[in-house]
C-alpha cells in the first residue's frame, strides 16, 4: 500500500515534472519547415541548454535534494543531465504525436549531422521506452531516480543520495504493482531502461565530438 507521505511525495514530484517543461515555442520550432544542418545543430544545442535548465528547476523540487551538499547537487546534475535529457525526449517520441510529427522530428535529427551509429541506438531506446507506455507519475519518478544516482563522479556523500533514491524507488515499486498488476516484471523493466540509458549517454560524448567534426 502507498502511504500518505508517499502519495504527497509523488504529487510534489509529478507537479514539478509537469510545471518544468521545455518552452512550447521551442519544441514547435523543431517541427517547422526544413532547416539546414547548421540551423538544426543550433536548434538542438539551444534545446539541450533549455533541457538542462528545466532539469535543474525540476530537481530543486525533489524533496531533500536542496539539503544535500551544494557540490554534490552539482555533481548529481552534471552526471545525470544527459540521461535525464534522453529520458525526457524519449517521452516526446512515445506520446501519441499528431500524425507525421514524429517522422518530421526523426528526419530533423537524422539531418542534423549526427552520425548514423549514434542515431540507431537513440531511436532504439525511444522505441523501448515507447513500448512500456509509462504513466506520467512513472516517468517523473524514473527521472528522479536517474538524478539521485549515488555513484556519479565527484559525489562525496553517497549515503545521503542513496537514502533519497531509496525512498523514490520504494514509491515507484509500489506504484508499478498497483498500476501494472498483470505485469509483475514491470518495475524491473523500468530499471532495465536505466542501464540502457547509461550506455546511450556514454555514446553521447562521442556523438558530440563526431557532430563537431561533421
Amino acid at each position: 500500500e502507498i502511504t500518505k507521505e508517499q502519495q504527497a511525495l509523488m504529487k510534489v514530484i509529478l507537479d514539478a515534472y509537469n510545471r518544468h517543461q521545455i518552452p512550447q515555442d521551442m519544441a514547435k520550432k523543431l517541427l517547422q519547415d526544413q532547416y539546414s544542418a547548421e540551423e538544426n545543430f543550433l536548434l538542438l544545442t539551444e534545446m539541450a541548454t533549455s533541457q538542462v535548465q528545466v532539469l535543474v528547476e525540476f530537481t530543486k523540487n525533489i524533496p531533500g535534494f536542496l539539503t544535500l551538499d551544494r557540490e554534490d547537487q552539482i555533481a548529481l546534475l552534471k552526471g545525470s543531465a544527459v540521461e535525464a535529457m534522453f529520458l525526457r525526449s524519449a517521452q516526446v517520441f512515445s506520446r501519441k504525436m499528431p500524425n507525421g510529427h514524429t517522422e518530421v522530428l526523426e528526419e530533423r535529427i537524422r539531418k542534423s549531422g549526427i552520425s548514423e551509429e549514434f542515431i540507431t541506438p537513440m531511436f532504439n531506446f525511444y522505441k523501448s521506452i515507447g513500448e512500456l507506455h509509462m504513466m506520467q507519475e512513472e516517468q517523473a519518478l524514473l527521472t528522479t531516480i536517474t538524478i539521485l544516482t549515488p555513484d556519479r563522479p565527484y559525489v562525496k556523500d553517497q549515503q545521503a543520495v542513496e537514502r533519497l533514491q531509496e525512498t523514490i524507488l520504494d514509491v515507484l515499486r509500489k506504484l508499478c504493482v498497483l498500476q501494472h498488476p498483470q505485469e509483475p516484471q514491470y518495475f524491473a523493466r523500468l530499471l532495465g531502461r536505466l542501464t540502457e540509458l547509461r550506455t546511450l549517454s556514454h555514446y553521447h560524448a562521442e556523438m558530440l565530438t563526431s557532430w563537431r567534426v561533421n
Binding site: L42, A48, V52, Q53, V56, K60, I74, L77, K78, A81
Partner: peptide, 21 residues
C-alpha cells in the same frame, strides 16, 4: 546567451536561480 556556457556553468547558474543575468 546561455547556450554557449558549459554544462556546469548552466547548472550553477540555474541552481543559484539567477538565470536572468
Amino acid at each position: 546567451p546561455a547556450s554557449n556556457l558549459g554544462l556546469e556553468d548552466i547548472i550553477r547558474k540555474a541552481l543559484m536561480g539567477n538565470l536572468e543575468e
